[in-house]
């Protein structure tokens, strides 16, 4: 299920947890949990903090790029093609 989720995200474009949940046929809460796991494992990342700083004084920041906004905004970005830095730690050890 996680691989399918990552494949869906990697198709590109903007996603919401609701969209992804509908595509996988599961609850949004489960997708949110999986997104959290993918972020912890490094497949997804928060946008650069420079974006957040630059958006701080912007009138429409919440509508687009401001990070950690309570009213929406870009929360996670897929790393290059879904690669996960450091994955395969055991294999590479």
């Amino acid at each position: 299920m996680l691989a399918r989720l990552l494949a869906l995200i990697a198709e590109g474009n903007l996603h919401t947890a609701g969209d992804l949940a509908a595509a996988l046929g599961v609850d949004r809460e489960l997708v949110e949990a999986m997104l959290g796991e993918l972020e912890r494992q490094g497949y997804l990342a928060r946008p650069p903090s420079t974006c957040a700083a630059a958006c701080a004084g912007c009138a429409l920041g919440a509508a687009c790029g401001r990070v950690e906004t309570p009213s929406g905004g870009v929360s996670l970005v897929l790393r290059r093609g879904g690669e996960q830095p450091g994955r395969g730690g055991a294999a590479k050890a």
């Binding site: 590109g12 474009n13 903007l14 946008p47 650069p48 420079t50 974006c51 630059a54 958006c55 004084g57 912007c58 009138a59 429409l60 920041g61 509508a63 687009c64 790029g65 870009v74 970005v77």
Partner: peptide, 24 residues
């Protein structure tokens, strides 16, 4: 829908974060 999408998305508020957002 390329990699330019996110930085451009930032530009609707102000173009400066859009320029800085190209760092990704």
């Amino acid at each position: 829908h390329g990699k330019s999408s996110l930085p451009l998305f930032l530009g609707f508020g102000c173009n400066i974060p859009a320029v800085l957002g190209t760092r990704i």
